[in-house]
Design a protein around this nucleic acid. Structure first.
Lengths: 119, 119
DNA sequence: GATACCGGTATCAAATCCATACTGTTGAGG
DNA sequence: CCTCAACAGTATGGATTTGATACCGGTATC
């Protein structure tokens, strides 16, 4: 079985995909939507420190990639819900693993940053 | 077992860690080193389109985080090898999954980008 | 002498990110 | 009526990151 796409090739579409995933806030947003739909403000509150501008951009990008769905319930005050699509949920699997890795290995990295490399 | 670190907390060190992982080229470099040590130029060639400046920065960052080791064999022409540390190899596991996801789901995303979102 | 190899730097422009303030609409409180 | 808050964002302008391109030193080879 040969691969149809190779992330290392400059012209491969998978490169674009990976860059999107690697965008600064993508992983946070996807993980934030892991437990179900959330409203804009809820996401913003949940992901501490994200600015509305960047959150909007990230959500729009994820939406156009088909990872996130935006449901506007209209009315007032505005009511918009964001949720992961099927595709988004499938991405959640590897991203949750990355998040877990990050939370698990914080001490190792803090350690490495403050000491001489040994390994 | 409760979590010691929470990526969603603005002040949590895991946030920094995750941002590093999410840095534009980190995943490419880590994956590029998956099969063993490589020299600077080899990495640069392998990851098409990365510039030397960015590669240097990424490698230095990964090195200071203890994910990559830099071995300088001196001599001339220069001979420097980069390899994953134990910690780096452990990160490879989730990152390889992300890479795989990217390569697998390219069609879905291209599709979503060109059509109206339907979920 | 000219050129290539290797592992990077230097320089400057462009894209992205961040902090902060502000918008429009409507309902509630006074 | 006037003011304020809630929600989902925009606008602005500056800081940070990224990227493109050129260049460096030392050796070996042509």
């Amino acid at each position: 079985m040969s691969k149809a796409y190779d992330v290392m090739a400059a012209t491969c579409p998978s490169r674009t995909v990976l860059h999107r995933i690697g965008a600064r806030w993508t992983i946070f947003v996807v993980v934030a939507l892991a437990d179900g739909p959330r409203r804009f403000t809820a996401i913003k509150t949940h992901i501490e420190g994200i600015t509305p501008k960047v959150l909007t951009e990230t959500l729009r990008a994820l939406e156009s990639d088909g990872l996130v769905r935006r449901d506007d319930f209209g009315g007032n005050p505005p009511h918009v819900e964001y949720s992961l699509t099927q595709l988004g949920r499938s991405l959640l699997v590897p991203l949750a693993a990355v998040r877990e890795w990050a939370e698990t290995h914080v001490p190792d990295i803090l350690d490495a940053q403050s000491s001489r490399p040994a390994d």
